[in-house]
């Protein structure tokens, strides 16, 4: 085994330029994928933030008995789609209005009678925050006798929904395209490395090396180059993220798992790219 490691490392020393070129190519290919991934991650995050605000408000008829409402609140919380339901009394509504609507504070101060209705604010679980489920829950809320009216941003919900679908579709297609381009470019550089050593491979085979023996150092070397390229890509992405975060907009970076996935992806491409190149080469000689 340590012979394999030695031969794999020897290739870096023997062809430093070509090795550096492979690593750089892998790094930049994955960097492009990574940049795109950053956009996707941040878009998802932004949409999640927006979706977070999807809320259904059921306004209650005046004079509904509080016991009934408390019971109903429990029922609503038991809906499978519902994450939380909160009762907001008339007084709480007024307090909130006073706090939030500073411009109208004077008007609100001088009211003799509270014009605001009590309400139940319903928040859905993340995976139910789409048009159909919002509609469904709203419909069920209307069924309660003490509910006067149900409001939610219908268009808003529909838009977020559509945006999310577009983002997912574009993400999949563009991400896959970038990944394929990266694989092709990386495969080509690895192939160059194999061809550069074709004389050596021929000699190895002449003196009785098995295909496996010839292949192993290349696989290890490919995986190593892929890993280095992946690490460099994550570093480059972090640099880009730091710049954007500082000068443009507040952004999110990859989670640890996503960063590891990029490095792992690099390793896999390096490994399988080498396997394909060496395999093809060995079949020809």
């Amino acid at each position: 085994m340590n012979l394999v490691i030695r031969e794999a490392l020897l290739a870096f020393r023997r062809a430093p330029l070509l090795s550096a070129l492979s690593v750089t190519t892998i790094a930049f290919s994955l960097f492009v994928v990574g940049l795109f991934g950053l956009v996707a991650v941040n878009l998802q995050q932004a949409l999640r933030d927006v979706a977070e605000r999807v809320e259904i408000v059921a306004y209650l008829l005046p004079g509904a008995p509080i016991e009934t409402i408390t019971l109903a609140e429990k029922d609503i919380e038991a809906f499978p789609e519902v994450q939380a339901a909160a009762y907001v009394s008339e007084d709480q509504a007024l307090d909130r209005a006073r706090a939030e609507l500073v411009e109208f504070r004077d008007v609100l101060q001088e009211l003799e009678r509270n014009p605001l209705p009590a309400s139940i604010e319903v928040k859905l679980k993340p995976r139910f925050r789409d048009v159909e489920h919002v509609n469904e829950v709203a419909e069920r809320l209307r069924g309660f006798g003490f509910v006067d009216d149900v409001r939610f941003g219908r268009d808003w919900v529909a838009n977020v929904d559509r945006l999310r679908q577009i983002a997912a579709a574009v993400g999949l297609v563009v991400g896959a395209a970038f990944a394929v381009v990266a694989i092709i470019i990386i495969g080509t550089t690895i192939r160059m490395a194999v061809l550069q050593r074709s004389r050596e491979i021929a000699i190895m085979r002449l003196v009785g090396a098995t295909d496996g023996f010839v292949r192993r150092p290349f696989l290890l070397q490919g995986a190593l180059k892929g890993m280095l390229g992946g690490l460099a890509a994550v570093a480059l992405s972090y640099g880009a993220y730091a710049l954007i975060n500082r000068w443009l907009i507040h952004a999110e970076f990859f989670s640890r798992e996503q960063a590891v996935a990029i490095v792992g992806f690099g390793m896999l491409i390096g490994f399988f790219g080498s396997a394909a190149s060496v395999g093809r080469h060995l079949r020809r000689i």
Partner: peptide, 12 residues
């Protein structure tokens, strides 16, 4: 996969 075994018995 037998070829390497053969070549180890030969010098070229």
């Amino acid at each position: 996969r037998d070829i390497p075994k053969l070549r180890r018995r030969l010098g070229i």
